[in-house]
Design a binder for these strands. Sequence first.
DNA 1: CCAATAAGTGTTTTT
DNA 2: CACTTATTGG
Length: 726
Amino acid sequence: MREDPLSIEYRGLLNPAQLEAVLHRETPLLVLAGAGSGKTRVITYKIAYLIHECGYRPEEIFAVTFTNKASNEMRERVNVLLEDSVDVWVRTFHSSAAKLLREWGKSLGVDPGFSIIDQQDQRSGLKKIVRSMNIDTETYRPEKYMYLINRAKDLLMNADEAASASFSSDLYFNDVYAQYQALLDRENLFDFSDLLFKLTRALERHGEVLERIRRRFRYILVDEFQDTNHAQYVLIRQLVGGGGSICVVGDDDQSIYGFRGARIENIHNFVKEYENCRVIKLEENYRSFQNILTASSQVINNNEERFGKTLYTKKGEGEKLIFCRTGTDYEESRFISKTILELGLIHGYRYSDCAIFYRMNAQSRAFESVFNQHRIPYTIVGGLRFFEREEIKDILAYIRLAMNPMDEIALRRIANRPPRGIGQRTVDAMVKACMDRGYSILHGDDDLPIAPSRKKLVLAFTELIADIGERITTQDPPSLLQHVYTTSGYLEWLRREQKEEKVKNLEELYNAVYEFHRSSPESSIVDFVEEVSLNQGARDDEFQDNRVHLITLHNAKGLEFPVVFMAGMEEGVFPHYLSGEALQDQQEERRLCYVGMTRAMERLYLTAAKSRLLWGRTVERDVSNFIREIPKDLLVEKEFGMSAANRASQRSGGSQAGLPSGSGLKKRRIVERDNSNITVNSRVVHESFGRGTVRSLQDDIAEIEFDDGFVMQFMLKYTPIQIENS
DNA sequence: CCAATAAGTGTTTTT
DNA sequence: CACTTATTGG
């Protein structure tokens, strides 16, 4: 080990295993980083070390992650350590591929002017193809082909190769894949899988370009390596070449993206694939109390084929885990809501200390409605994303179409939005005519074989798009956007239809573009579109306020919260009934459970409802097997809301708990109150929850049963409550 | 040929 | 329940 002084005091800031991971650089390195063991710390310090101590220039370092959130966080932390050495390449796999293709496309034989389509566009394209083949779209669902085609691309197989390898036994798969790819190629569109597929293919063919890229990136770091798919694995292999300048970090127990092609074998076989590989395990956990670690370890121990590691912490045992069975999903929300309020009143937790994890996005609705009633502020992380909204995608489609007049998918999206008399028939005719004759889709000549009554309308539309196209280079992004809003008639249409929410979103889009323009004045709207088509991103304000976080288990990876609720711990919901019987799938669900549990720092609650209103039906559910895998002595079991009284209150809609609307109640202010006149059995009125009776009183903590059956504890000196005056 | 309305249907996780 | 597709009236 080096003995010369280091310019950053690494030794004091890292534990021995972390330090070793930072300093090792002669041969390939695999860091097995358990949950909460400081892996981001290792990566960022390693980057700093390479630059400060080993003579690497920032732009020679290539660091990839999976999510935009992770890459933003990493870039920020690197910038703090390096005092704004922003040239380090910190990007997601997909944005890395897109950037390399744009930069090197010309020498790689790839047209760098491609547009990127998201899965919605991908689906609509496939739907069109399947329908045109006149086959039964119920047995042969477009979604199925979407899945298969993406998996084939992840495995670096084009349509021909997939066909000769008998990739799928589906009768029409080969045909659908070929047609779909023809559609994309014709219009120079790339789906997400294409980015990596085409890049690795092109690098294979052009060894001389690969060689130049290798010389540029002298050290490669990969985060969350357990989630790499085959294409990503191959890309990394290509970039590293024969050298040892690679460090991958991951945790096989946290591999949760098998459904989109991730191969856990990549991390398991890394040692075999990279010669002289060094393996370092990070097993000290800095996040959770021991009870949480023990419980989650016990759960994940039921999986096979793991590296296996033993997480430990120097923190104490901490609280036991709490498992609560409720009658219905609605009561589950009420229990969690009540618990959050109590944690705040009794232990001083803030809303933003609490997070609720669930398996399916649809589960958030119950929480939203109960939280609204109880005036608990919340935020849905990664729910309906801003840039996935209809109106946003429509506006961006105008710009996309102007950029790339071959983009049929964008054309179909907006040809008649707002309604301008160009229906499906007319669009079909336009597309077909142009395809046959090799025109651009925007060709507005008189000889197009469309109904005479439509010609004028079509001409007006093509002129509209052409006009936008000219302004892309001449106008700055914000005013161009404004121009699109008005000349397309889109904004006026929304106003006429009274879609206030959507109008607001367009304003927000304008703000985003304005901000984009301000921060990089030389960039065009094209760059903006590029950014948002990859950054299917969240808004910045997601984490700012004091709000409870509602979040899917998949989105929770990489986060941590003092208090975690895992909701819907029921067979069929989690593990999800569609996740498959195969051992592989069951194990992935279990890893997802492990990921969720290990996010908790101090308190972990698990809840399950007996019956759940899902898909318009009430379904009875058993408790998830994962609960049984938690040692009994670490678990406090409770029940909530299965009494007749609560059933009744539920039917009445729960409006009793609603606040009187209006004055001054938006923010709960912490004011001390004198409630010493309240004793056991007092009849009381609570500002939010209405009338009730005090059931017990101990050390200023009162348990109150409200008339609707809702039972809750309060710290009286902070509670807005009075004796009922009769 | 388009737009509004009525019936019908299939429900995970995401770059 | 929310979203897609068939039908009918303009």
